[in-house]
Design a protein around this nucleic acid. Structure first.
Lengths: 96, 96
DNA sequence: TGTAAGGTTAACTAATTAGTGAATTTCATT
DNA sequence: AATGAAATTCACTAATTAGTTAACCTTACA
């Protein structure tokens, strides 16, 4: 799967069509979407299924799916938990 | 203020003393704390008060204070909003 | 020392995520 | 095309953040 193509589809869907949406809400959705793609790519690189990742992090595959599809604006700790505990990779966050 | 020193104090407080806390919960608190310090440092670099940042992002100074002190496990979009809209700086997130 | 600005804390409501089970759909493989 | 594994969606509750007000501390400095 190509992240960029899918992200463009997302832009069309939210920016193009439902034009009354605020910039902040739009950006929030974009962010959730991008992070979802990042998680999915990292999970596949680690050769885990959604269910395996869910078990390792004490949650359910349905929830992982929701996150990977950018369906919710998750908490920082949730993302951290999935990346660090579930995939054993460091999550890097910096400003500027 | 030195981030590392303060973070060590945090380690002492949560890791040393209240030892029954789960690793995940502990890490969540550390994360919130570290991000709070990052935000505060970036805000000061931008020469803004908590109140000014609050106004720019449509919230209140009391909420900014809570975040800077790592008192809550905020959502990704909240952190993003403060950094990108409030401070005009990019928020970088990556895995690995 | 008084004052004001900046920052912290407490308390509360409303909105949203976290977490779950079950049904459904997609996808790869034979 | 049939099968089974993997992923998605829906519906729901409980827990937590987002957002706010007001009171209270701290710090700088006139």
């Amino acid at each position: 799967m190509n992240s960029i193509t899918t992200f463009e589809e997302h832009l069309d869907k939210y920016h193009g069509k439902q034009g009354t949406e605020s910039r902040v809400k739009f950006d929030t959705k974009s962010l959730a979407f991008r992070l979802g793609v990042m998680l999915q790519e990292a999970r596949k690189e680690a050769n885990l299924t959604q269910e395996e990742l869910a078990i390792k992090t004490g949650t359910k595959k349905s929830y992982i799916s929701r996150i990977e599809n950018g369906k919710s604006d998750i908490q920082l700790s949730t993302f951290y938990k999935l990346i660090e505990f579930g995939l054993g990779k460091p999550l890097n966050i910096s400003i500027g």
